[in-house]
Amino acid sequence: MSASTLARAAFPPDWTKRFVWIGLAIYTVYAISTLDIDGARIARGMANAARLFDRMFPPNLQPDKLELIKDGMIESIQIAILATFVGVLLSLPMGLAAARNLAPPWVSWTARAIIAVLRSFHPVIVAILFVKAVGFGALAGILALIVSTMGFVSKLFAEVVEEISAKQVEAVRATGASFFAVLIFGVFPQVMARFVGLTVYQFDSNLRNSTMVGIVGGGGIGAPLFTAYQRFDYDVVLTILLIIIGLIMIAEFVSARIRRIFQ
């Protein structure tokens, strides 16, 4: 509009922002074009979806299936519990070692490098490697989830420790307390609530992931789920999915309560 070019510009155009948006739009169009989407495929997809849902409902609630699902679910829960317990126990010293305000540089950088490696692989890939190393079964799943637990909890715990008030620590140090006494009275009180929060969050996350490691042989509900899927028993798949969703909802509710107890 010519009027607006004559008048003073109330809003100077933000070219960087526009550039980002335009670039994103062009990329999106290009990337979609690589997916080979055409009318026939969409139509086939819709028909497949209809058949899928038709087979899914009603969910299969036969006792023998439920028995199988129960065993798988229990194993998944146990995998999550043990992986969280061991992973969090190991994350405590690892996180302290990675905190730059407590540990000398060479310790914290070593710890940070280890954490970066632990974090970089998806639990499923780690599970594949552990299945090869220790064989099929829950142990491989537990070890894989311990790795991802350590990667996540140590990193965030180190960040929490780095945010603590140095003054409170200094005051405890000034009483002549030893290093461990300073940790117990000066550092832990400041970080424990957050640590418990991280732990219960990670438990939820491990519960979700423990339903998946079974697909590559790491134990838990994943194996029966994958079998049912390959046999086109989609009604059993739906039952398992509903149980997983219900379990996660309960777990999130319980974690919120636990977090409040340790506020």
Binding site: K167, Q168, E170, A174, T175, G176, G186, Q190
Partner: peptide, 13 residues
Amino acid sequence: IGMVFQEYNLVER
């Protein structure tokens, strides 16, 4: 040697 600080420096929690 005891020490008293300007901002108290109590462990808050």
